[in-house]
Design a protein around this nucleic acid. Sequence first.
DNA 1: GAATTTTATGCCAGCGCTGGCAATTTTCTT
DNA 2: AAGAAAATTGCCAGCGCTGGCATAAAATTC
Lengths: 340, 340
Amino acid sequence: MLSKKATIDDVARLADVSIRTVSRVINDSPRVGQATRAKIKQIIEDLNYHPNTQARGLAARRSYLLGMIYDNPDALYINDVQRGVLSVCRESGYELVVHPCDMHSDTLTEEAVSFVNRSQLDGVIILPPISENNDLAGALAKNNVNYVRLASVPLDKAEHVVISNERSATAAMAEYLVGLGHCRIGYIAGPKGMKSTRERLEGFCDALEKHGCKLETEMIARGAYTFESGIECARMLLANPNRPTAIFASNDEMAVGAITAAQEMGLKIPDDLSIAGFDDSILASRITPRLTTIRRPVMQMARKATVKLIAAVDGREEDACRGVTLVPSLVTRDSTRSLD
Amino acid sequence: MLSKKATIDDVARLADVSIRTVSRVINDSPRVGQATRAKIKQIIEDLNYHPNTQARGLAARRSYLLGMIYDNPDALYINDVQRGVLSVCRESGYELVVHPCDMHSDTLTEEAVSFVNRSQLDGVIILPPISENNDLAGALAKNNVNYVRLASVPLDKAEHVVISNERSATAAMAEYLVGLGHCRIGYIAGPKGMKSTRERLEGFCDALEKHGCKLETEMIARGAYTFESGIECARMLLANPNRPTAIFASNDEMAVGAITAAQEMGLKIPDDLSIAGFDDSILASRITPRLTTIRRPVMQMARKATVKLIAAVDGREEDACRGVTLVPSLVTRDSTRSLD
DNA sequence: GAATTTTATGCCAGCGCTGGCAATTTTCTT
DNA sequence: AAGAAAATTGCCAGCGCTGGCATAAAATTC
């Protein structure tokens, strides 16, 4: 058992070359002879040598570490993003450092910058809703930190961003519901202050109007993206003498809450009331009735974002700056049906 | 705008001391005078100086990086663990590098060791079911890697482990069901080969027998911890002419599948059939009827594990070696009721 | 007040690696 | 075959920090 880990010196000595040459092999530099390269590779293998990332980073100002900054409002979403990011990291030899933050903290920007500097991260991916914070983005840019933002809505700066067009997604949902004959529709919105809340609402609203249905003010309830708020909002909506025939909740948690509330009132879903959600979370497919919802290409977004980030880190800026937009898709299940 | 980041030299120059003294302040060494320390701290503040972790690590053989190794069978569980680990990391100045692995890979051990070495991790936390792999644990120990395992069952080596006693948890569930008057109970087990499968089953079985009820062979179905397998197993169990009055599924996903299957057969839960799960996942509280289940102290386990790990890293081995056992608790909701 | 202990600070080497350039060898020209 | 160009390799400095020891200053002892 090797009591000490092999270093580049050991490899060089055994290969009878200078460490500089070994370094070239490690870094896939072309300026190395065939035979030499093969010999060195063999020795690296035999020795089970792994270059010391810290030393590499110190010398080359690289850490091969990416960061992920997020608040924690939706664990499931984050999980998918993390998976996507990791899959690309794996392919590219990077590791991922995860870093939850409080989006409401006064020192968010400072703390995020410090995080990146402290760990010498090569770049960071910022998840919604923190990604909507332009101060942060500005501070990172100022500190020459590579970053990519994931967002559900267009941001002030269209660069370094991967977005899913949720406006068009909720529009599609509106059209789908109208197509089923619904016109009086209840809408459970997200909390004020998040861009996604407005974006989703507007997309839905506009599409509805385009088809001659108006989203009445009393048919809009403000939730908080939580199960409980979904229950309350649904109760409110359904207490209206002129009850909606369908309810769209702007996330699945609230939609499930709405289903629970409606069932408690003795309503059958989807016979007496159609309900749809947004996220296609694990809940959507497990609940009875299975929930009609909207699926964002989360994993794909995460992958794209990571590819962009690594491109920027490697100085291949070509397409790194351009924003990327992906479209969510409608998933129809059993919680919605035509009015007939 | 600082074009270059401040280094320890800058701080030392401004404070008119040697970098060694600044280093002492950074590392909270006691051997520094009051006044000097205060002055240096002030300058660090003013300069917004952050020590370079790579350089620190290279010199001190420390990275302040912890790793988390896991396969991905249960995203929700992992999420909770990650949160717990991170909360301790935050308090202790460590960052967390996440590293999913394929538990069935031939090169799992090699890859894990390489991961730790490559990134110079100070330690790793290993999640189930990978934590059950003793080869891995052995290899890590051999390489002088600090690690702590999270497990649901006693492992061969009782050291470096935080376990939740699931045997007693399923025993409690069995007693609870017996207490409700159930005696003919269906059991949906996990896949073969995982220790938790056996542990949960035995705990349940033994407790049942202690109360004079036997778990008949035809009342045991083998699932795969998935929703679909829960459906299938429940169908099988319920197809038995002498139907069970209660079904315990060894995780929530399967329990939800069982509920779905039972409802499809026209059974009312809990009136015609009691169903219980294991995990207290998000599903359990969202589904109708709300699921009776077992909650493991996941976050607490994760925290304990991390504290242990950091203690080991810091050389405070005192209690670092002793294993820790935590007990899950029964969460009774609406999916179970007394017979009669 | 000299000797001793304690406290505070500085110096040097080196952690393991890469960048830039120089040196060497090989290959190609003419 | 001599000179030029290209391919290969090596040397040195230094990335930013800490460990170990030496030194200097202050506090304590007798």
